[in-house]
Simulated scan of single mutants.
Amino acid sequence: MQKIVRIALVVTTCVIIGYLSGMVTRESITTWYPTLVKPVFNPPNWIFAPVWTILYIMMGVAGGMIWNRMETDEENVKKAFKFFILQLALNALWSYLFFGLQNPLLALIEIILLWLLIFETYNQFKKIDKVAGMLLVPYLAWVSFATVLNGSIWWLNS
């Protein structure tokens, strides 16, 4: 399989997962979420979709780059991809917990686990391809911010 096809497949997968996660949030964004007390640093709602789209694309490119190393570093690539898939699943689960179940505390616990898995994915990726690892840094930074935001929303509304 061509390298660009692998990257495109992983990018497409990440964007689809992001889209499906967004479907869970749509109703709550207009009904439940506006009723919450939010911290002063809460960004406007319109910022989330473009930021997440960019992050999913970067994540997909990084994943595809790692997949492209399968022939030369199979053991490390398989290990790194396990973390990648786990963090992607937890990423999708967060939207369900926060917006679907409307449970900021459960989402906070989960996003801390997500952050740890992203960090480990970053560590695994950078061992294989430094650029692929670096492509995850904005994602890690955004989830760090999202963790603080999630925790603040839970605190302000409990």
Rank of each mutant, 00 (worst) to 15 (best):
R6P: 00
I7G: 10
A8K: 06
V11G: 08
V11C: 11
T12F: 15
I17Y: 05
G18Q: 08
G18H: 07
S21A: 14
S21K: 01
T25F: 01
T25Q: 03
E27V: 10
T31M: 05
W32D: 09
Y33P: 00
Y33W: 00
Y33E: 02
V37L: 13
K38T: 12
N42S: 14
P44C: 03
P44T: 11
W46R: 01
W46F: 09
I47F: 13
F48T: 00
P50S: 11
P50W: 12
T53E: 02
L55K: 03
Y56K: 05
Y56R: 06
M58Q: 10
G60V: 05
V61S: 11
A62E: 07
G64W: 05
M65V: 07
M65K: 14
I66R: 04
W67N: 02
N68A: 11
R69G: 00
D73N: 15
E75S: 14
E75N: 12
E75V: 14
K78I: 14
A80E: 12
A80L: 12
F83Q: 05
I85S: 12
L86T: 15
Q87M: 13
A89L: 14
L90P: 00
N91I: 03
L93D: 00
L93P: 01
W94D: 04
S95F: 04
Y96A: 08
F98G: 01
F98A: 04
F98W: 09
L101G: 03
Q102F: 01
Q102Y: 00
Q102T: 06
N103P: 07
L105G: 02
L105S: 01
L106D: 02
A107K: 02
I109G: 10
I109M: 12
W115H: 04
W115L: 14
F119L: 14
Y122G: 06
N123Q: 14
K126F: 09
K127A: 08
D129R: 10
K130F: 09
A132S: 12
L135H: 08
L135V: 08
L136K: 12
L140S: 10
A146K: 01
A146G: 07
V148G: 02
L149H: 08
N150D: 11
G151K: 04
G151W: 05
S152A: 15
I153W: 01
W154A: 04
S158P: 00
